[in-house]
Design a protein around this nucleic acid. Structure first.
Lengths: 104, 104
DNA sequence: CCGGATCCACTTAGATACTG
DNA sequence: CAGTATCTAAGTGGATCCGG
């Protein structure tokens, strides 16, 4: 892929936005362990590629909302195909690894 | 994904094996630019995860063949879904990036 | 609240040289 | 032919501190 959906967090971020717009801190919580820097970084990249929009509200305290674009939503089709594969076959992968571990 | 199909080469390697078994040097050619080290590394990882098999022939000169397992073949379903998405939408991603670039 | 700036640790891959 | 060994370069993510 020419853009970053293969990295550590982007996939999860998109999932967190599937049900509707979320603000920065609402994303940080479910993505346990992500730092603010990396979250901001990832969001900028996804925005740059047109998968989500960033809306800044002129309030106090400040509020920023992220929302999927139609393009972003269209990714869930292939993503679900991969997830389905994982559900069906990941046990086989783990088993193969266990055998390799035992042999090797 | 818990295993490496998201890295730089694994996806391409699997594609090169789609039509049937190939030997080491037959993989190196179409994967232009891959080094022997990285190819060997990737193949070992894919073998470890049960996606392909490695068969060493006791000949001279030596010959080693790599072949997809049923599990490996089963990956093409979701892979094709992602490729179809890319064909349909990658233009939009590029356009978004060009706009972001222009905007600064 | 939403990050940017800086520094650091780790992983990957490329280059090169060598071997059974 | 089919790798391994070693070194280096680059990218990515984490930790911490600081600012609008």
């Amino acid at each position: 892929m020419p853009f970053k959906v293969g990295d550590k967090w982007s996939w999860l971020i998109l999932r967190c936005l599937e049900a509707g717009p979320r603000r920065f801190s609402e994303l940080k919580v479910p993505l346990r362990g992500i730092t603010a820097k990396v979250l901001a970084q990832s969001l900028r990249a996804l925005e740059r590629d047109g998968l989500l929009t960033r809306t800044e509200f002129e309030e106090n305290p400040p509020r920023v909302e992220y929302e999927l674009t139609a393009l972003g939503h269209s990714l869930f089709g292939p993503m679900d195909a991969v997830c389905a594969w994982a559900r069906e076959h990941l046990g086989q992968v783990d088993a193969a690894r266990a055998r390799a571990e035992a042999a090797g």
